[in-house]
Design a protein around this nucleic acid. Structure first.
Length: 399
DNA sequence: GTCAATTCACATGAAAGAGACCACGGTCTAGTG
DNA sequence: CTAGACCGTGGTCTCTTTCATGTGAATTGACGA
């Protein structure tokens, strides 16, 4: 069985030493260029070690600036320090509020919190305030300090309002034994403006800002990861520079940089090369784009796909600018051909806005004076990516 | 020629409905001793 | 007598509709030079 199906994979020396390190949710032992922020965050949560309740805090920074990873890092450190010092029990809870079906509503947020305390509640059916009370009773049973990290908190607030935050802060004043500190992470710098004044003042006791990385810092980060993640000698120095430069253009997104590097490695491996070169980075960039778009197109609900298909078809039919009305007409056609229910234009307008958010199309509201005001729609994808999307949609809807 | 009013084709917001899912408590039914 | 089936009520959640209001510049038409 020597030349089994997989022998060619196993025989070849792998490019990767530890691929895990090259994913963006890996937490390294030390986080480069974030010393200042980590120190700040540590000083905020440090009172927990002396059994005082830490202040609430907000962490700001655009995507890929290391907020989440730093928060994880500090929480881990805090827990190990607490273990050594034998303090009041400290519990840290990390919740990503954007995760679909996990914590994207108030009910589910509390359900998730309860789950952290081994209290399983049904997905639905209970009034939210029952969960709230349950949570309250549960944590106040014993003396403890709970640090709750709410990642992407802006997503949840924009969806369900800021009332739950108010409830959470109020919990704190009613607790007798336990303490609850909230650390909100957001990539919307103006997030607090929209908050209720009461929430803002009690939650924004401390603020930490994570600036974007520049190309040099990204390079350092990649160097570290690459050294641990790749086998020696598979990487040309220029590859790292290129990844760093590309990601720096995208507002210094370290996640992007790391993904680029990893995918470049995967591409090289697939092509049975022993070295990663710059051309692999180019391919990786395209592939990440392709994967991102096709994935989100595939997972869109049918109606949304129909709208996208309408946009693509109308775009190729029509010269000049494409307006919501044009798309709606085309969409109606597609629906009748496929026995799909025709939704109102109001709804289509929203679906178009969502597609814009996904980065699949570009959208701009412009006024044509006497001839009304509408969105001018254009495709944000082209070439192979567009062809792929077309194919997916064609399979779904045919002509 | 100038200027304010008009007008279009939607955008944007708010509220509420439909239908799926579910928990809970009470009532009914059938099986058991 | 009791365990389990069944039902009504009330809850969440997503997708959608309905109703209402907003918007910005091309066009229009009144007006004065």
């Amino acid at each position: 069985m020597d030349d089994s199906l997989f022998s060619s994979y196993l025989d070849k020396p792998s490019i990767f030493k530890n691929k895990n390190i090259l994913t963006s949710n890996y937490i390294p032992d030390k986080i480069a260029h974030r010393e200042e922020q980590i120190k700040q965050l540590a000083s905020i949560v440090a009172p927990a070690l002396r059994s005082y309740s830490p202040n609430n805090a907000f962490v700001f920074g655009t995507v890929g600036t290391g907020k989440t990873i730093s928060a994880h890092f500090v929480m881990n450190e805090l827990l190990t320090a607490a273990k050594k010092n034998k303090t009041v029990p400290i519990k840290t809870i990390y919740i990503n509020c954007k995760m679909k079906k996990v914590a994207d509503t108030e009910y589910r947020l509390f359900a998730r919190l309860l789950k952290e305390f081994d209290c399983v509640v049904p997905d639905t059916g209970l009034p939210t305030d029952v969960l709230y009370r349950k949570f309250f009773e549960l944590i106040d049973k014993q003396e403890q300090i709970i640090i709750l990290v709410l990642d992407e908190i802006d997503a949840l607030v924009s969806k369900v309002g800021d009332e739950f935050l108010y409830n959470l802060t109020r919990i704190n004043t009613d607790l007798t034994k336990a303490h609850l500190a909230i650390i909100g992470i957001t990539n919307d710098l103006s997030f607090t403006d929209a908050l209720d004044a009461r929430v803002k003042s009690s939650l924004g006791e401390e603020e930490i800002i994570f600036p974007p990385y520049n190309a040099l810092q990204l390079r350092d980060i990649l160097m570290e990861r690459a050294a641990a993640g790749f086998n020696d000698g598979v990487l040309e120095e220029s590859v790292i520079n290129k990844c760093a430069a590309l990601a720096a253009q995208e507002h210094g997104d370290a996640r992007r940089a790391i993904d680029l590097l990893r995918v470049a490695g995967e591409v090289a491996e697939r092509e049975h090369e022993t070295k990663i070169s710059e051309k692999h980075v180019d391919i990786a960039e395209q592939r990440i784009d392709l994967d991102r778009v096709t994935e989100s197109v595939k997972t869109q609900p049918r109606q949304s796909q129909a709208v996208l298909y309408a946009i693509i078809k109308a775009d190729s039919d029509k010269l000049g600018s494409l307006l919501t009305g044009d798309v709606f007409d085309k969409y109606k056609e597609i629906c009748t051909n496929n026995g799909l229910k025709i939704l109102t234009q109001r709804r289509i307008s929203d679906l178009i806005a969502e597609l814009d958010m996904l980065g699949i199309i570009h959208t701009k509201v412009i006024s044509h004076g006497r001839y009304g005001r509408s969105r001018e729609i254009s495709l944000a994808i082209e070439g192979t990516v567009l062809d792929n999307v077309k194919k997916i949609l064609f399979d779904r809807f045919g002509e």
